[in-house]
């Protein structure tokens, strides 16, 4: 098991964002976490990355508990996140953004990663010296994904990569995620676009107000009546 989350509870002051959730991610899988606004999806990813501290429960990664590990050390352990809303460094160039993604890596590794990312996203290569703030939304999302790949993670966390993108771009981003997974990377995908998410995931969990209410294989979930009603707009 690559990642195992057990009875994870998180609260922000008085607000209980997660009420004891458990889920697992196996090596090589694409697992998706779907849910409505405010369900606690981003909180889950932030807690895995150490940005938010859990109130209770454990997060184990490669059989080690990482609850108390600092965010920057979690990156060195091989977890990388594409945060919600892209969060690229707008005042840095595309190249500098990518270099930041490889902050934990040495020069040689950075150069290698850079080549790989540019190969995957030729559009970033063309805009290498442009400020990230001047990129279009779709390009920023590609940059955010490219930046996360720079550290060569084993586990990639993606927080709503389809947010605010046109349907064609959404398809492009999802096919890129599939490709990334095929190249051997494990993916934990958070989405509101359940349709797309279920189409590329192996397994899925449904999160509702801080609790996991359903789980199963993606095909099962896509057929589930409740899921179709609540998340697939039927």
């Amino acid at each position: 098991m690559l990642l195992a989350v057990e009875n994870l509870a998180v609260s922000y002051g008085g607000i209980q964002a997660l009420r004891g959730i458990s889920f697992t991610v196996e090596e090589g899988e694409v697992v998706t976490l779907v849910g409505a606004n405010g369900a606690g999806k981003s909180t889950t990813l932030k807690t895995i990355c150490g940005l938010v501290r859990p109130q209770a429960g454990t997060i184990s990664y490669q059989d080690e508990t990482i609850n108390k590990v600092a965010p920057h050390q979690i990156v060195s352990r091989g977890i990388s996140q594409v945060p919600e809303g892209r969060r690229v460094f707008t005042r840095l160039t595309v190249l500098e953004n990518l270099e930041m993604g490889a902050y934990t890596r040495n020069k040689q590794e950075t150069r290698q990663s850079l080549e790989n990312v540019f190969e995957r996203f030729p559009r970033l290569k063309e805009r290498e010296h442009q400020l990230a703030g001047t990129l279009s939304g779709g390009e920023q999302q590609m940059l955010a994904i490219g930046r996360a790949l720079m550290s060569r993670p084993r586990l990639l966390l993606l927080d709503e990569p389809s947010m605010g993108l046109a349907p064609m771009l959404v398809r492009e981003i999802f096919s890129i995620i599939t490709e990334i997974n095929r190249s051997g990377m494990t993916v934990l995908l958070v989405e509101q676009n359940a349709n797309m998410a279920l189409s590329i995931a192996k397994r899925a969990y449904v999160l509702e107000t801080g609790q996991i209410v359903l789980s199963g294989t993606a095909t099962e979930m896509a057929r589930n009546k409740e899921v179709r009603k609540a998340y697939l707009g039927e």
């Binding site: 940005l51 600092a70 965010p71 920057h72 945060p83 969060r87 840095l92 500098e96 930041m100 902050y103």
Partner: peptide, 24 residues
């Protein structure tokens, strides 16, 4: 420099910088 770029990144987005593995 690497630390200089990290400074600029941190000043723009503290949280995103730590997601890069930068020791803020």
């Amino acid at each position: 420099t690497k630390i200089g770029k990290a400074m600029r990144a941190t000043s723009e987005d503290y949280e995103a910088a730590s997601l890069m593995g930068i020791n803020v």
